[in-house]
Amino acid sequence: MTISKAPPAFPRDEYLRRLTLVKSEMARRDVEALVVSDQHNITYLTGYTARSAYVPQALVVLATEEEPVFILRRMDAPAAMHQCFMERDKIIAYPEELIAHPDKDGYDAII
């Protein structure tokens, strides 16, 4: 199934500008990787607006990469592919088996 991209709320350059500001602060603090788990900050940095923060999800911003990596539940990945400005290979879905698992959850995939 092919998932088309939605018209972005902002141009790609705007999301890259926002990430540049984050990376500037990361450099100032000598941080190489930042894990963003707040839904509102994920939306601000990617354009993802689906209400899926009731399960673990995170945006990983690497100082050396132009685009972040978004790790989220498999059933929510199509919405991310549709909404986010990033390339599809930057959206990583973790297995549904981690939902309501007695010993593991989505944070295990994120870590």
Score class of each variant (00 low, 15 high):
Cys84Asp: 06
Val35Lys: 14
Val55Gly: 00
Thr49His: 15
Arg88Pro: 03
Arg18Met: 07
Met81Arg: 14
Leu62Arg: 15
Glu87Phe: 00
Met26Cys: 05
Ser24Phe: 10
His82Asn: 09
Val60Ala: 05
Gln39Arg: 11
Leu45Asn: 01
Thr64Ala: 12
Glu66Asp: 14
Pro68Glu: 07
Tyr48Pro: 02
Leu19Met: 07
Ala63Leu: 14
Met81Asp: 01
Met26His: 03
Asp38Asn: 14
Ala80Thr: 02
Glu25Met: 13
Thr64Pro: 00
Cys84Ile: 13
Arg17Ala: 14
Thr20Lys: 15
Leu16Gln: 10
Cys84Phe: 04
Pro56Gly: 03
Ala63Phe: 03
Thr64Ser: 12
Lys23Glu: 11
Arg18Pro: 06
Val36Pro: 04
Ser52Cys: 15
Thr49Leu: 07
Glu25Thr: 13
Ala80Pro: 01
Met86Gln: 03
Thr64Val: 03
Glu67Met: 11
Met75Arg: 14
Pro68Gln: 03
Arg51Asp: 10
Val22Trp: 02
Val31Trp: 09
Val55Ala: 10
Thr20Asp: 15
Leu34Met: 15
Glu67Ser: 07
Thr46Lys: 01
Glu66Ala: 13
Arg18Leu: 07
Pro68Tyr: 01
Gln39Met: 06
Leu72Val: 01
Pro56His: 07
Met75Thr: 12
Ala63Gly: 08
Met26Leu: 09
Ala33Pro: 00
Glu65Val: 12
Glu67Pro: 03
Thr43Gly: 00
Leu59Ala: 04
Ala79Asn: 06
Thr20Asn: 15
Arg51Lys: 12
Val22Ala: 06
Arg73Pro: 01
Val36Tyr: 06
Ala53Gly: 14
Gln39Pro: 09
Ala53Pro: 00
Pro78Thr: 07
Pro78Lys: 06
Tyr48Asn: 02
Asp38Ile: 06
Leu16Ala: 05
Cys84Ala: 10
